[in-house]
């Protein structure tokens, strides 16, 4: 072995070690955060905590209305953002010819993704709560979150559609398929795992945000559950914000317990996305 190959191998080994250390550090930070919140919050979590409303000025009781509220808000967001986002992506990837218009649309989407969430909150307040008179409500909050989520859903869906081989489309069209038949029967099923991953990642972000719902949907404290989409609601991230900053003498354990529940909600969605992706990959091994 010449000395130069030995040197190259040493360099490679060093580079590899460095990368391993960086990866390990990243994982360590994530695990540390999860473990910290788990350890400090797990004592608070009990059936009573999960399934009862707060009491005694939120210093006692549970977080049930906030859990239900976050569930409703996420569901509402999905209802608006998923059909609209997937539809827009199908238009961009399958129908629109590359033009100034599509370039402008893409630039707009990229920029929307970079807007701070509090700006979405103010926009939702102006448009949905005040102008359209939805009031502070699940409807207004869901729509605000949906607009915030759209860019993520559109761009991941478009990417998933574009990764379907062009030859599939050509074959389908050559056999007498219309564009829509081709999209529906060949392209969408192939892209579905990628689309679902994008949808879940988008909704996960919506579920965890405080600022967009602060002015549009969230209530400080509600003694009862929302009964219509036009009712305000409590929500986990906002509740966490409130009990961490607005309530003097708040027991720390309840704060961490709430954070833990929110984290489980979000990480759970993430796990589902990962599961869908790995199952789709396993199926492709055929």
């Amino acid at each position: 072995m010449t000395s130069s190959t030995a040197k190259r191998q040493r360099q490679q080994a060093a580079g590899f070690t460095l990368l391993t250390v960086i990866a390990a550090l990243t994982i360590f930070v994530i695990v540390a955060i999860l473990a910290y919140i788990l350890i400090r919050g797990v004592g608070a979590v009990s059936p009573g905590f999960l399934f009862t409303p707060p009491s005694n000025g939120m210093k006692a009781g549970g977080i049930w209305p906030a859990i239900v509220g976050t569930f409703y808000l996420t569901l509402g967001t999905a209802l608006f953002a998923v059909p609209l986002g997937i539809g827009a992506a199908i238009y961009l990837a399958e129908y629109a010819r590359e033009s100034t218009l599509t370039r402008v649309i893409r630039i707009a989407i990229t920029n929307l993704a970079g807007i701070p969430s509090v700006v979405y909150g103010l926009f939702g307040l102006g448009l949905f709560v005040l102008f359209l008179k939805f009031g502070t409500s699940i409807l207004a909050g869901s729509m605000t979150l949906a607009i915030m989520t759209l860019p993520v859903i559109i761009s991941t869906t478009e990417e998933a559609l574009r990764s379907v081989p062009q030859s599939f489309r050509v074959v389908s069209v050559s056999l007498g398929g219309t564009r829509w038949q081709t999209v529906r029967k060949v392209v969408l099923p192939e892209a579905l795992p990628g689309i679902l991953t994008g949808v879940i990642l988008g909704l996960e972000r919506a579920a965890g945000e405080t600022a967009p719902i602060m002015f549009t949907a969230a209530a400080f404290f509600l003694p009862r559950m929302p009964s219509s989409p036009l009712d305000p609601t409590m929500a986990l991230p906002y509740h966490l914000f409130v009990i961490s900053t607005q309530v003097p003498g708040m027991p720390v354990q309840i704060q961490f317990g709430t954070a833990l529940v929110l984290l489980v909600f979000v990480v759970g969605m993430n796990l589902v996305a990962t599961l869908i992706r790995s199952r789709a990959r396993a199926r492709r091994q055929w």
Binding site: F168, V171, S172, V173, S174, L175, G176, V186, P189, E190
Partner: peptide
């Protein structure tokens, strides 16, 4: 296209 079928050089099996 229903009346004029086509077979390509590289076979493409749909999934």
């Amino acid at each position: 296209r229903r009346k004029v079928g086509m077979v390509f050089a590289t076979p493409v099996a749909l999934p």
